[in-house]
Design a protein around this nucleic acid. Sequence first.
DNA 1: TGAAGTCTTTCATATTTATGCAAAATAGCT
DNA 2: AGCTATTTTGCATAAATATGAAAGACTTCA
Lengths: 152, 152
Amino acid sequence: MKKQERQRYIKRLLSSKEIERQEDFVSLLRAENIDVTQATISRDIKDMQLVKVPSATGGYHYSMPVQKKMDTEKKLKRTLKDAYVSYATQDKFVLIKVLPGNGPALASLVEAMHYEHVFGTLGDDSTVLIICKSLDATLELQQTLQRLLSDN
Amino acid sequence: MKKQERQRYIKRLLSSKEIERQEDFVSLLRAENIDVTQATISRDIKDMQLVKVPSATGGYHYSMPVQKKMDTEKKLKRTLKDAYVSYATQDKFVLIKVLPGNGPALASLVEAMHYEHVFGTLGDDSTVLIICKSLDATLELQQTLQRLLSDN
DNA sequence: TGAAGTCTTTCATATTTATGCAAAATAGCT
DNA sequence: AGCTATTTTGCATAAATATGAAAGACTTCA
């Protein structure tokens, strides 16, 4: 399955880099030894329903589809509320303790959110470690999580 | 204020028509006697952070920004949960009874969601009337509202 | 295996969108 | 009003994206 694999890569790129043009996908995929043309990327984007979002800072970047993002956030919220035990931060890390068994699920939801400033996520049985890209990002993420926890 | 007014029109068009290209905005605005070029629309879209979404049916259409949509849905949900009394449907109408004073707020939130298949919304002190574009749409809207009401 | 059908990709290009720059409009001052 | 600064717009065009058509892969079935 060539196409699916490529689309998985595209998803991963979405969260790790700020992608402004379809050609960026082409270059980045080339770097991972996946050879495609812009035409294919255009079709992938249509397939995956990605959108090109005008960002507040003036540029543009590709992002998850609205609906999926909303759905994911919903699940994330529910999981958080269900399983949350405690959290702590240090440096660029946010460490969340959850009820046993919920770590992996929560971690993968956080990943699926493709938060701009999250560098990586890791979940074991009852702990989720989120590594942010900066201290500011850590703060922001904390607030996001708190917002999710405090209902709405 | 020329620009702001135009952007209001753009917002209204967003919910009423399926807009596929920036030129569509140009024509539709021309029809309302607002003269603009595609260049301006492009800048408006950047300003307003609208996105061009690949729709499930194969085409593309412009739509609200992700974040705003999420925020609006959140407020809508909260308002619904806070103020909801009862609802009824008939033909293409959904009539929601709410606690006194909440009608206008709820109506404007429903409008802000720019639901594809909602024709119009009207809220008095304690009632909101939503007029859909088709019977199917009415059913769908009902489900959406129920989903919002039943937590998540 | 090979023919037929389906799916995917590229190439070339049409279509659409973004933007530099100059002109026009608008807003602040005095 | 008159002048200056700021914002907004259009024009022309560059840049980015989408897509028809042909070629290549991959399936399936006999």
